[in-house]
Design a protein around this nucleic acid. Sequence first.
DNA 1: TCAATTTTGATGTACGTAAATCAAAAAATC
DNA 2: GATTTTTTGATTTACGTACATCAAAATTGA
Lengths: 341, 341
Amino acid sequence: MRPTVHDIAAAAGVSLATVDRVLNQRPGVRHVTREKVETAIRELGYIRDVAAANLAKGRTYPLVFILPASDNSFMHGLNAEIRQAIVRSPAERTNIRTIEVSAFDPAALVCVLEGLAREKPCGIAMVATDAPEVRATVDRLVRAGFPIVTLVSDLTGSLRHHYAGVDNIAAGRTAARLLGRFLGPRKGEIAVLAGSMLVRDHRERLEGFTAVMAEEFPDLAILPVLEGRDDPEIAHMLVAGALARNAGIVGVYSLGAGNRGLVRALKEKAVDRTLTVIAHELTTHTRAALIDNTIDAILNQDAGHEVRSAIRVLKAKADGLPVIDAQERIRLDIFLKDNLP
Amino acid sequence: MRPTVHDIAAAAGVSLATVDRVLNQRPGVRHVTREKVETAIRELGYIRDVAAANLAKGRTYPLVFILPASDNSFMHGLNAEIRQAIVRSPAERTNIRTIEVSAFDPAALVCVLEGLAREKPCGIAMVATDAPEVRATVDRLVRAGFPIVTLVSDLTGSLRHHYAGVDNIAAGRTAARLLGRFLGPRKGEIAVLAGSMLVRDHRERLEGFTAVMAEEFPDLAILPVLEGRDDPEIAHMLVAGALARNAGIVGVYSLGAGNRGLVRALKEKAVDRTLTVIAHELTTHTRAALIDNTIDAILNQDAGHEVRSAIRVLKAKADGLPVIDAQERIRLDIFLKDNLP
DNA sequence: TCAATTTTGATGTACGTAAATCAAAAAATC
DNA sequence: GATTTTTTGATTTACGTACATCAAAATTGA
């Protein structure tokens, strides 16, 4: 049987109350006594029964998710996954609330974070906007003891405990290699459709993409980035325009959202040519396009995994427990038409 | 606050003892009374606090993993992950034991399963050997109330509750499309290295591979399968021989283990030609080969995820709780040199 | 040495559920 | 109506921990 607090009390030759004081770092224990208890804990290999402790404390985990108010299908999916998590809340002792902040607005994000500091949630998950003032606020909250994980978009260099999202540079590099290899010996131009270069994920994907293209596929030239604002209409216009103007385009990399517009443009303008297309995010639209060969590969991050991982990590941090790193690594999914879920 | 047993007792106008009898399906409750309690449960939205229940019961989850006694790096990795899970056992209330059975030996597997029926574990995870007698035994155990999940290798058509492994037909199809697309317009022959055609996973991968090759890449001809028994030495011999004999080989698909031998053969015999190579399972050897361009892509199943998923599912089934399907789906990882973990 | 202070022990209650016992009530049987 | 059987209630203990209270002991300072 696993040792209990009673066992360590007996082993250390102290009372239950003293063990409790040590375990919960309450005051009023002499240094030598504390050490006795601590060695007993170590020697017996005592592990606190978190379930019993939570029961005794009546503990719940008030968590806050801070999301940008942008309405593309990825964010809708992310929202849906959070709602699923809210449904599971009673069983998981969580108490999840979401807050929307206007997208790409560091000041608004900082304001929300400041407000949260007062209501004392036991964990914060946030889609980070990359700005110095956000970093400073996050660092301050972390130092004040709040567990914070970034979601989907990281805040590199900050003290956030964890990042629940994919490595976007690796994603861009992977897209480049897939595109390059699929095109083989063909030469020509590559159109890149992004949401906005103000978004860190998109910048990073592009950075990885251009790096591999330059290193390994010198016969393929990257055209100036089309910024579609993650909007299907704008994406359609931009891609259709590019295809009409430039007959040398042999491949397309869509690293943001708004792929419905991309697909429409491809079906209208590229019936007569063989384009190789890599897009991000598996949605109903991209899935259909992958199946009918309009798109050749889809890179995806699983929003459900990201949300569940964020919750697991926040709970673990709140309890001071370790996390299983391999379990919490968010993987880049590569979908061809053969391995769709 | 969540309702407790006290609340439903009050709401149903019965005593705590009766609620307990209903909840734990103990006898001695009249039909009408049972219904009163059940409607109270539904109306108050009562959810049993599993943590408190487990505490009261002193519950642990004795689980058994049945693994084939084969010593390739994948099985070693799987074993290592189970040992990790055993380390986490105290925190998860699990009590995990592994049993090795000689590989591809249905009779031995059946024998072990029969033996398990007597010791009453609360869940069984098994790497299945696909045979009618195994299926029959599994079905009998499932009907007797044992939660059973198959691991890595499935037992289709059986009553097993869950399969913690990848879709191997999809894996083969994906490999074929990657190989076909990477080769582009090139024509030639494809060498296929398998472990053994007696193993279901390998048969399925080959099935998916040949299907897509036939449908979509008619210019690539698949050579007779080389069966390397998952042994590096045999694999080396077979691949080296094939490369020496046949100058028309443009691609290799290695769908089993023993890739160390494959890599050695490639480095010896294919320095002068450009082969496209797809292999399964990320190990130190395949990882190094991917980085130095000897291998072009690696398909992988994450043994850690498989083990953790099997445990989660078995625990859930033992408690009669639902599982999150999306969370338990084991994904086929595709690694290029750019997205290695 | 006495008083003041700090440290420790003893004890009880609580969390939500399981499981057992025994008495009381209700229903079914004769 | 009396008897047996079934159903229900009331109550207690337990799981492992948290937390509070009050008394007792040990330590410190004067």
